[in-house]
């Protein structure tokens, strides 16, 4: 199956409707398993106690924040190069999900930081680059919102997303640099060279669960977006046909 199989929105709707229940069930099961493993099976950290369990939400959220942006950048490239009709729908539908994951990573990071660092917010390099990432998401969504014509909005947002994708490594690099300049390594860092399997397994399960959840919400949002565009098109067509029937009488 290649990309063109799904290039037809009607076919996509049918296909997406068929796999949605499966993906959703799988996501719920994996998330349930991951939560159970993380909250009850994994041992508490010898230093941080049960607080370390925040990690099982925090790390997957942060990972998804980056993963979703990568996905959006790929979709934007596909939209610009091949004008694939579903690519910009996918990118648009992804943005709020990615923003939520990034926000969740920041919130859980700050909840974790309060007992560990004694402050809600520390200008740690990772937190700061996640904050910039959140602003990139917000800008992307605002641009979609501000441009009325969906064709132009899609193109503009795709260009912005790709510019961001090129810039993100530079931002990451400079924030790391800035952080080492301003803050000597006073921050408690998790891990060390190896993570024990009792922590790694629940963590990986949660990451898979988060990804499946993302796919579920993405499918729902893409279907909603396609339906919304169809409604808009039908409405415009009706207005246009009414105008054309009225025109001779007026003239």
């Amino acid at each position: 199956m290649n990309l063109h199989f799904l290039a037809n929105p009607t076919r996509f709707q049918r296909w997406a409707g068929a796999i949605l229940p499966w993906v959703a069930t799988l996501a719920a099961l994996t998330l349930g398993l991951g939560l159970w493993l993380g909250l009850f099976v994994a041992p508490p950290d010898y230093q941080q106690g049960d607080t370390v369990r925040i990690m099982f939400v925090h790390v997957p959220s942060a990972w998804m924040g980056l993963f979703v942006y990568t996905g959006m950048a790929s979709a934007s490239a596909v939209a610009l190069i091949w004008k694939h009709p579903l690519a910009d729908v996918a990118a648009k539908a992804s943005a709020p999900i990615g923003a939520c994951f990034t926000f969740l990573a920041l919130v859980t990071g700050s909840l974790w930081g309060k007992p560990m660092w004694g402050a809600w917010w520390v200008w740690d390099a990772r937190l700061t680059s996640m904050l910039v990432l959140l602003f990139l998401y917000l800008g992307y969504m605002a641009l979609w919102d501000a441009v009325e014509d969906p064709a132009r909005a899609g193109k503009a947002a795709a260009i912005l997303c790709l510019v961001g994708a090129v810039d993100i490594p530079v931002i990451k690099f400079s924030v790391d640099w800035w952080n080492t300049l301003h803050q000597p390594a006073s921050v408690v860092r998790l891990g060390g060279p190896t993570i024990h399997a009792s922590i790694l397994v629940p963590l990986l399960t949660m990451i898979v669960g988060f990804t499946l959840y993302y796919l579920t919400v993405l499918i729902v949002r893409m279907r909603a977006e396609l339906a919304a565009r169809r409604v808009q098109a039908l409405r415009q067509a009706r207005v246009a046909s009414r105008e054309s029937t009225l025109a001779p009488e007026a003239g």
Partner: peptide, 25 residues
């Protein structure tokens, strides 16, 4: 990107400022 938009002025800051953080740093 924001050419001709009604809310362009504020939007352009939201789009550009995160991208130029390396220059500031």
């Amino acid at each position: 990107l924001t050419l001709g938009l009604r809310r362009g002025g504020v939007l352009v800051s939201l789009l550009v400022l995160p991208l130029v953080t390396p220059i500031l740093i």
